[in-house]
Amino acid sequence: MGSSEKRSKDIMSDIPTFSAENLQNNLKVIQNSRTFLSIIAGVLAGIIGFNGLIGFVFYFVVMLITSVGLMAKAGFSADLYFDSWNRVLFDGFLGGLMSFVLFWTFAYDLVHIF
């Protein structure tokens, strides 16, 4: 009885308790920010006239700036709002790539071809 009670206490104390609703809210905020900036980066790349790999380099630069902005928004202390630093820095990094290519080609066609 004592050992089983101790074991259950250890199990309960080992698992960290997070507020799942707030974690979901934070992840949704990050996804929305990254999606919107992917679209904006695509429009910018199209207007400037980037071709080939320069456009993808531009996308990753904008995503890095977004990561720094999200770090600043979290107050440079990701422990309060997320379970790890990767959530702020790299989550959703490649998710907006298709949106970027879509709006890149769309803006390029509008400005430079038509």
């Binding site: 308790t17 997070f18 507020s19 707030n22 974690l23 809210n25 934070n26 949704k28 905020v29 929305n32 920010s33 990254r34 919107f36 900036l37 904006i40 700036i65 977004t66 902005g69 999200l70 600043a72 928004k73 979290a74 309060l80 709002y81 997320f82 379970d83």
Partner: peptide
């Protein structure tokens, strides 16, 4: 747009 993307979707809520 960067500033809008970082402010408009909402604030971060504490998970603890």
């Amino acid at each position: 747009c960067m500033w809008a993307a970082l402010t408009f979707p909402g604030k971060f809520l504490s998970i603890h």
